[in-house]
Design a protein around this nucleic acid. Sequence first.
RNA 1: GGAGCCGUAGUGCAGUCGGCUUAACACGCCUGCCUGUCACGCAGGAGAUCGCGGGUUCGAGCCCCGUCGGCUCCGCCA
Length: 583
Amino acid sequence: MKDRDCGSLSKKDAGQVVILSGWVHRRRDHGGLIFVDLRDRSGLVQVVFDPDTSKENFNLAEKLRSEFCVQIQGEVSIRPEGLENNELKTGEIEVKAQKLTILSPSQALPFALDTRSDVDEAVRLKYRYLDLRRPELQQNFILRHQVTKAVRDFLDKEGFLEVETPMLTKSTPEGARDYLVPSRVNPGTFFALPQSPQLFKQLLMVSGFEKYFQIVKCFRDEDLRKDRQPEFTQIDMEMSFVEEQDIQQLIERMFVYLFERIYAIKIDTPFPRMTYQEAMNRYGSDKPDTRFGMELVDLTDLLADCGFKVFNETIKKGGQVKGICVKGCADYTRKQLDDLTTLAQELGAKGLAWMLIKDEIKSPIAKFFTDTEIANITQRLQAQNGDLLLLVADQKETVAAVLGRLRLDLGETLGLIPKDKMNFLWVVDFPLLEWDKDENRYMAVHHPFTAPKEENFDEDPANALAKAYDLVLNGVELGGGSIRIHDANLQTKLFKVLGISEEEAEEKFGFLLQAFKFGPPPHGGIAFGLDRMIWLLAKAESIRDVIAFPKTQKAICLLTEAPSTVSSKQLKELHIASTVVKS
RNA sequence: GGAGCCGUAGUGCAGUCGGCUUAACACGCCUGCCUGUCACGCAGGAGAUCGCGGGUUCGAGCCCCGUCGGCUCCGCCA
């Protein structure tokens, strides 16, 4: 039904008769002459309907409206002198319509498929199929296709095997909330949709696949964010006989390959490495955005004996005082400072201390410090006249959370973030464990199969490090992985520290522990959030812009109206009953 | 579970201090005119349960309470 793509036509095609099919992007009816911008996936071309060519055709063209699906046969011709459109790729030519076929008409649209208007996202999602007609959205999916294709090509070249793992699988504790699927055949039992193919890919290593990958949907029933959807896609990999640097180098080669193939640019490797500790100290985040400075500066040693009770008492209790220097913001208003303070309090700080440096120090707390202390603070923060200093005193987790967030917010509002930069960063040496106050036990920071750096990690669990690594791009966690435990004794030791009993371990992961009795190879892997990758590469507003049919923050699909109630017959077959009382 | 912002024709929005409009404007839509436009132009027209429910008031799009939905964030996301 078409022999050419609209966007592919150029001067070279002049004189040719072509058949095009697509949508009426815009129509300009001059009464005696009608112009139509015809759009298909490839782009736009102007079609001219002239009654002198065919009166019948022209009359039919008068019926055309936005988004009619049409086929047009016509002659490509060079536009008359002075009538070219430089805004359009095909602007040097136009198609003189000889025959128009209306393949299907369209109702008036619920919203304009126009970049200029910022349409409410609820309306866009309800009519997602129309939203997806917008070229800028289609571009995201073209990119997404190119990336997955390149990833497959690269991993194939590196000797990886793509293997599918089950979607209906076993619910495992430790981790995100599962999406459950009731079993009809086995009353009272449930499958879980995978949070990741973690255990299966480890089993594939036991099977001797050596290099596995999969581009696969994963499901986590947790609350949504602009970079989080309940179902998302991972590029999941696992390799045998590797150490951390083998995997990191492979991933660096992969990104070099991707950028070369998609953007024809060369990116620098190796990517910088930063320990978790350093990331937290300097940026207050385990996924630092290193595209700009404003780093967190430790002032604890300078202020341990200062006259400000809030500070010295916090320090005595094992806390710290840190600050950031906000360049050129000494003219911040009381309102702006109050807003920053409110944000700090929402994140758990008791307060936010500020100092405006305007020739002299303007600050409600300045009177508590000696001139030497003030001089030391400003010097260490490398503050100059005209700067604003923000200080937080608290336990180190809170200090990091508050200043890390203030840094990001201020970096954004002050325009300090260079948008064209692509700053990859490996964050390494993650802690193995983390104390969970609610559960009153240690939890695995990564997951309970992650190998510790030292075999005697149980002697000082709080400070044990893991063979785990995250790849961060521009402050977004793109992916993470680890070297796994393949030694049964080590695994048992870790379960013990995690407070998982032998019986529980047997019940939950028995199949894995069993498998590890049959010569498991040393192995490790990594997984990337594909949606996040595309989101960053496409510089899209939200992750929803790179997912064809995304869900709202309430995890609802406005297009299909899923989830929905089901018949009592369906529930009965599944041996389940809803506890929700219809009002 | 919690916090914030938003909700007015199909779309984007204005609506001031609660009483001046018959809820304005732009795009879109419909009708007519228009042979070189490209965000075509011109003339006319239709189109609003002001998210929903309750309250305050002589009077509510506007104030209060609740509720629903969208977005952003905290918690959560091994």
